[in-house]
């Protein structure tokens, strides 16, 4: 049954690749890649359970972190066309915290 779950997730990943190919805008593609990453985390965990080697979960944790950072980095790059811009706006907008 875990194998069936793994296959369902893999089918979902293949369908997401379709969205990444045809997505009309850049943001559709980034959304597809981000969702693909979440599914990869789940697929890695399930693969560990199917192969009865739960050590795969370490890779899944790392992938969860890298997926988030890469999404933010890609978005930042396409917004400013550079990685050299600070994202933090200190002292502007919002209430500074006490």
């Amino acid at each position: 049954m875990t194998a069936a779950a793994l296959i369902a997730i893999l089918v979902g990943m293949a369908l997401l690749l379709l969205r990444a190919f045809i997505g009309p805008t850049l943001y559709d593609r980034i959304l597809a890649v981000n969702s693909f990453g979440t599914k990869t985390v789940l697929a890695l965990g399930l693969l560990g359970f199917v192969m009865e080697r739960p050590e795969f979960l370490d890779i899944a944790i790392t992938y969860a972190l890298i997926n988030f950072v890469s999404t933010i980095a890609i978005l930042k790059f396409f917004r400013y066309r550079s990685f050299q811009v600070p994202l933090v706006r200190r002292g502007q907008g919002g209430n500074a915290d006490g």
């Binding site: 875990t2 069936a4 779950a5 369902a8 990943m13 997401l16 969205r19 969702s35 789940l42 359970f49």
Partner: peptide, 23 residues
């Protein structure tokens, strides 16, 4: 074990539903 396997399957089917929605 059956409960966990069933929940895995249900969750992955929900992932599939979400993908269909994305498409």
């Amino acid at each position: 074990f059956p409960l966990g396997a069933f929940m895995c399957l249900a969750g992955s089917l929900l992932c599939l539903v979400g993908t269909v929605g994305v498409l």
